[in-house]
Amino acid sequence: MDTLLDARPGAPTAAAFRGRPGRRGRAVRVLGYLALVVASAAVLLPFYWMVMSSLKTNNDVFTLPVKWVPDSVVWHNYVDIWRKSDMTTWLRNTLTLSVAVTVLQVFTGSFAAYGFAKVRFPGRDVLFLAYVATIAVPWQSYMIPQFILMSKLKLSDTLWSIIALQAFGAFGVFLMKQFYESIPDELVQAARIDGMSEYGIYRRVILPLSVPALASLTLLTFVNTWNDYLGPLLYLRSHSIWTVQIGLKSFISTYNAEYALIMTGSVLSVLPVAVIFLLGQRYFVEGIATTGLKG
């Protein structure tokens, strides 16, 4: 699990066996840095531009030559946006959805994963295959029957539709199963001999051991729900239940020439995710690495 984090300086990696320290080694190292600096600049440029534009007056966003730094910082956009849009409602809806989906996905996913990883019963592996296979089936190909089904269940145009859509995905099951399989079966067997029930083992043996994986799943699900655009686009028609993504999109079409304000809205929609990512990036990285190991 921690392997990815060992890429820090000092950890024995493949590079440790490359060039001995010498002029050539130093040149390679400098080139490596240079390439990374250029790549980071390319990755960060749009974010830089987004933040800078949100602090400009509208007329200063597009100028020739481009102003990379605003003449004077305009904080006013960050006041105006709340007045001109329903940002508060959107953020509240998005937060509600993200929390509800995350709670459900983490609970049902980790629970089901225990059944797949630690309980043996006929048909289990076939069923798991069905879960994995849906990863190769694009959601776009069954969104229409799903939409019709949701409408029949009277869920469309309610926040419940998004919860139903996101909370039972195969991803959580997959991630947690991968992790549980790294926990030795002997541990579970020993608990069984001690007379613990399977539910007791799940709660008192497995869950405490899987805190890092649970953290990964929590953060990935939260961010994923926060960023979802297609689900809300199809299901949330009433303005009062809009999420920040769909609200921002409509704001962009309504005020299509208010560039600075649009960038302010964009910054606000990205900011919570950025904070969560910076605080918990270790868990993001580990979660991704776990799902990728399947190969």
């Binding site: 820090r8 300086p9 980071s40 974010f47 531009w49 990205v270 990512f277």
Partner: peptide
């Protein structure tokens, strides 16, 4: 994947666009 300083920082930077909302990114 080498012994460079600030590898963690570069990794964070490279991964960041992936977790940023597509609406904001497309607009920028």
């Amino acid at each position: 994947n080498r012994k460079l300083r600030a590898v963690a920082f570069f990794r964070t930077v490279a991964f960041f666009p992936y977790i940023t909302s597509i609406v904001a990114l497309a607009q920028v």
